[in-house]
Every structure is written in C-alpha cells, then in structure tokens.
C-alpha cells in the first residue's frame, strides 16, 4: 500500500510538472492576449519530433537545447506574421486561426514523419534505474524529467518575479490595456511571450517524447487536458496553473491506483432488482476505470462553483 502511494505520488508529480511546462505558456498567452491557443499542444508535439530528429544526428542533449529554440523561434514567427495580422479581426478570428494551425501542424508532421510512432529513445547515459523503492525500480530518465521541469519552473518564477520583463508581463496579465497606455511595446511583449510559451511546450515535448510515445496524435491526446489546467488554475495566474497541473497529475495517477467503486463502498446491489438493470454498470465501475474523465469532471465543477478558477485574479 505504502509502495503504491509513494510511486503514484512520484508519477503524479512528474505528470503534473510536464503539464505545467505546457500550461504555463498557454495560461500566460491566454491571459495577456485573450487568445485561447488551440495550437499550443502542437508546439509540444513539434518539440518531440524536432528533438527526435536532432537526436538522430547530434544526440539527445543537442536536441534538448536546439528543439525548444527552434520551436520557440517558430512560435515568434507565428505570432508576428500570423496572429498579429489576424488580431485586427477580433478574438474569434484568432481562435479559428490557432484552431486551423493545430490541424496544419498535425498534417505536416504526418507528411514528414508518418503516422506511426517514431523510435525516440531514452539516451543511454540516462537509461538505468535511478533507485529502488521496495522491490521496484524508478528509471533515471523520469528523475531527469522531474528535475528539468522543476529547474524550469524555478527559472520562470525568477524571471516573472524578479526582472523588469517579468514585471511588465505580470502587469499585462491583469491589465493589458494599461500597460499599452504606459508606452510599453505590447506587441513585442506578446511576440516574446508567445515564443517562450511555445519553447516551454517544446521542452516538455523533448523530455516526454522518449518516455511516452512520439507520434502524430500526441497533441490531440494532451490538448484538452491543458485547457482544463488553465480553467482550473484560473485566468492570469501562473501559480494557479502550477497548482492545477499538480492537482490534475495527482488526481489522475491516484485514481488509476484506486480500486474503489460504489459496490466496494456500499456492498453489492441486490441482484435481479430493477435497480440492478439501471445502475448496475455505474455501481460496479471502479475509480481506476473513470480516471481519464476525472479532470473534465473537475473542469465542470470549477466552472459551476468557482468560475474564476482556484487562483484566478479576474473574471474574464
């Protein structure tokens, strides 16, 4: 029991940190620019594929550095020549633009790398068990993922809290119009933020790619969860996104580990009743089986009871 709790906690925190790497960019872009960036998870996917391609020639570490830079660059280009042009026509146009971009990126990835998973390997220098808890191993690569995510979180926190750029970004989070009035070049800040956001998502892609599956549907699998993180965390709050990421990571892993069901809690239904026919399925389903929908349940509950999110600073 202790073993499961410990391993689930580790896995949950790890998954949460990966989510945060992506959600941090998304939430900042959303709060500042009002754009719900549907293509954000696509940058994560591009990060994984770029990382894979670079790792074949120059090794994993070169990929870890170069892929996020490339994707970040791509992000700034998308903002400068795509979003900024569309911006004039309002938020709906921007939304549609990112929505279309997600499909374009997915199709491009399929054209270049095919629809099958690519063989993105954990680098040999990290391919060993880091430590043994009880009788199980914990892979070194996962520890590395965790440390990288924490390091980036710390760096991000420093930049936002301690630098001038961070100050302006923070101001723009809650009062974007006022920042513009004060004479700051809001356009350039937007471009920078979009690029950094895309780059962070790419970092997540590079370090998640070898551990999970690198294939063309990976953006589609993760995209919806990111929106949950942003909504649950609250608009305009990086710490909210952090909290929500960890919460969702932990909820999902612990739910999988749980065998609880209504039948387990309240005993079996009386067989052969009409009740059995109607609620039998729901009665016997375990928490583990419904684990994938729990984040969305959370989303619905938050929207009903606390629409501004856990730590949101403004309503819209």
């Amino acid at each position: 029991m202790v073993e499961i709790v410990l391993i689930s906690a580790l896995d949950g925190v790890l998954y949460g940190m990966l989510l945060f790497l992506m959600a941090s960019g998304l939430t900042v872009i959303f709060s500042m620019m009002g754009v719900l960036n549907f293509a954000h998870a696509s940058f994560y996917m591009l990060g994984a594929f770029f990382g894979f391609q670079i790792s074949r020639y120059l090794g994993f570490w070169a990929g870890l550095v170069a892929a996020p830079l490339l994707v970040g660059g791509l992000g700034t280009v998308v903002e400068r020549y795509g979003l900024r042009k569309v911006h004039r026509h309002g938020h709906v146009a921007e939304l549609l633009f990112t929505f279309g971009l997600a499909f374009v990126i997915e199709d491009l990835v399929e054209m270049v790398w095919g629809k099958l998973p690519v063989d993105y390997r954990v680098p040999p220098s990290l391919d060993f068990p880091a430590f043994t808890i009880f009788s199980g191993n914990y892979p070194a690569f996962k520890v590395f993922e965790l440390l990288t995510a924490i390091a980036i979180f710390a760096a991000l926190l420093l930049v936002v809290k301690r630098t001038r750029v961070g100050l302006i970004v923070q101001a723009a989070l809650s009062h974007p119009d006022m920042v513009g009035m004060l004479g700051h070049n809001v356009d350039r800040i937007f471009m920078l933020v979009f690029g950094v956001g895309a780059g962070l998502a790419a970092v997540a892609g590079v370090i998640a790619g070898p551990a999970l599956v690198t294939q063309s549907n990976m953006a589609g699998l993760l995209g919806p969860i990111l929106f949950v993180v942003v909504v649950v965390g609250g608009l305009g709050s990086l710490s909210g996104a952090f909290l929500a990421s960890l919460l969702i990571g932990l909820v999902q892993t612990f739910a999988v580990a749980s065998n609880a069901s209504l039948a387990g809690a309240f005993g079996d239904l009386v067989p052969s009743g009409w009740l059995q026919a109607y609620v039998g399925d729901i009665w016997n389903v375990t928490v583990a089986q419904v684990a994938p929908i729990l984040p969305y349940l959370l989303l619905v509950l938050i929207l009903i009871f606390r629409p501004r999110g856990l730590m949101g600073t403004r309503e819209s």
Partner: peptide
C-alpha cells in the same frame, strides 16, 4: 482484474505499480 481506456494511455507505470503491489 483491471480495465484501462483503449489506446489512450501513454504511461502505464501506475498500472505496473499496481501489478507489483
């Protein structure tokens, strides 16, 4: 006796932890 969603799981380590336990 475990059931998991079809082709949606990318990390099975929580399930493996459960099998071991």
């Amino acid at each position: 006796n475990e059931f998991h969603p079809l082709v949606k799981i990318t990390d099975f380590s929580p399930y493996v932890a459960k099998i071991r336990a």
